[in-house]
Design a protein around this nucleic acid. Structure first.
Lengths: 250, 250
DNA sequence: TCTCGCGCTATTGTATACATAACGTATTCA
DNA sequence: TGAATACGTTATGTATACAATAGCGCGAGA
């Protein structure tokens, strides 16, 4: 217990939640496996009450499943579950983009989006794209999507998108890092950036249908990345979330 | 405490959750008001641990909001929040219908939907529609929507729709009862049933875009019902969820 | 009279003890 | 030998006690 500063600053509940999530995503807890509260108490250092709170939150988050007779188990996801989750996110982001377009967005609100866009442009200028640049892309991409979501100015929509993106494999940049070595990945990034450009243009011109359609298509890129990542299993270590995928043999 | 059978059969957590939700929807706990755990312990009869679990679940459900300094408060919703939540549900149901259409559904799976459709047809045959018929409609309508959602055969989509419909004012039949007295309401029910008919037809013919579009339009009826209910405040007592709406004066 | 600070109170966060239910194992009976 | 039942152990659900923090009020000083 050397991390005294962490112990005191954040609540035990959050600490337990983060620790358990790490264990799940790292594969230390395998899908289908029942999570023992006492074991979780030992590994997280928190007592049973915050551990239970963390388990409830992780269930709501979608990583755990309640067992009818009591307790929780790690959820297993099929490849289709994952692609559906990504398409779900795309649909919701499409709704957000449409709302933004239909309801109008001021130039001032669009500013940060455009800055983000320019920053990604800058990144993609170098060829081939370095691993560091991939990493920066992930950050900027997450920022772009977050800003876009907020443009809807609809708390219920924002909330739902956040919930949909909480699943680690459904988030906008989930499978970007997976094929940083592949040449195809660079093309995908360029296409993704074009989508970013189009959605901003559509919102500026109040073209709701166009904004919605492009965000849906944009999410399809993530599905493509998922497929690529599963076929080229060279960089699977970059994808902790893959520990949750149930294959046909399981 | 006369309900001993309830005390023993369901867990204290669920009991507390139901009791607190009732209090929120009935307006006993006002929006923006901080929920005292001790007070909740008194009113629900459960102890603090299950009360806290219930509070966490209600927060995830969207009825409560966490206070940064600790504890929870009842969430307040604007009229726009509610209409956005309904449109959100419509968008998700549209996705489910599209999945069903695109991926194909067997005649056997469509059977229960058609039975439901026929039952509603039967109800709407009598003119004017009785209050009892309205009540039956609510039940059948909920069943229809649940069956349709399942047709997507996509657990992530089903899960998300369930979560979106958990908000009492976002559920498919939220504002149906509100204007059972209005003549306009009968027309709306007839239109809604037409939508039901069309979505099944679209799914049968694997017309994904049509299925999706009609479900979105269908949700717009609920928005219309909401507006009607807010303008004709004669039957507001039938709408417990309205206790959560924050008006401009609040 | 207003503002700043100190202290108290009340409420939440955490830990632990207890009870109950479920699951596994062993023994007995058919 | 197999199956069923009973008992024991272990886990979860619940309750309560304790600690820490935040908010509020009162008092004192400027």
């Amino acid at each position: 217990m050397a991390e005294r500063e962490v112990d005191r600053s954040v609540s035990q509940t959050v600490k337990a939640q983060l620790a358990l999530r790490d264990q799940i995503l790292s594969g230390a807890l395998r899908p289908g496996e029942r999570i023992s509260e006492l074991q979780a108490v030992e590994t997280t250092g928190a007592s049973r009450t915050p551990v239970r709170m963390a388990l409830v939150r992780l269930e709501e988050e979608g990583l755990l499943e309640a067992i009818p007779s009591g307790g929780f188990m790690v959820k297993a996801f099929s490849e289709r579950d994952i692609s559906d989750s990504i398409e779900l996110r795309g649909t919701l982001e499409g709704l957000a983009a449409r709302f933004a377009a239909e309801r109008g967005v001021s130039a001032r609100e669009l500013e940060p989006l455009k800055e983000c866009l320019a920053a990604i442009d800058e990144l993609l200028r170098q060829v081939p794209i370095s691993v560091d640049a991939f990493s920066s892309y992930v950050t900027l991409n997450a920022r772009f999507h977050a800003l876009l979501t907020e443009l809807s100015r609809s708390p219920p929509v924002i909330r739902q998108i956040d919930r949909a993106s909480a699943l680690p494999f459904a988030s906008p940049s989930a499978f970007v890092m997976a094929q940083s070595a592949l040449t195809e990945a660079q093309q995908i990034l360029i296409i993704a950036q074009e989508h970013h450009r189009v959605v901003i243009d559509a919102i500026e011109n109040r073209e709701g249908a166009r904004a919605e359609a492009i965000m849906r298509e944009h999410a399809r890129l993530a599905v493509r990345n998922l497929r690529l990542a599963l076929r080229n299993r060279t960089h699977l270590d970059l994808l902790p979330a893959l520990a949750l995928i149930k294959t046909a043999t399981d």
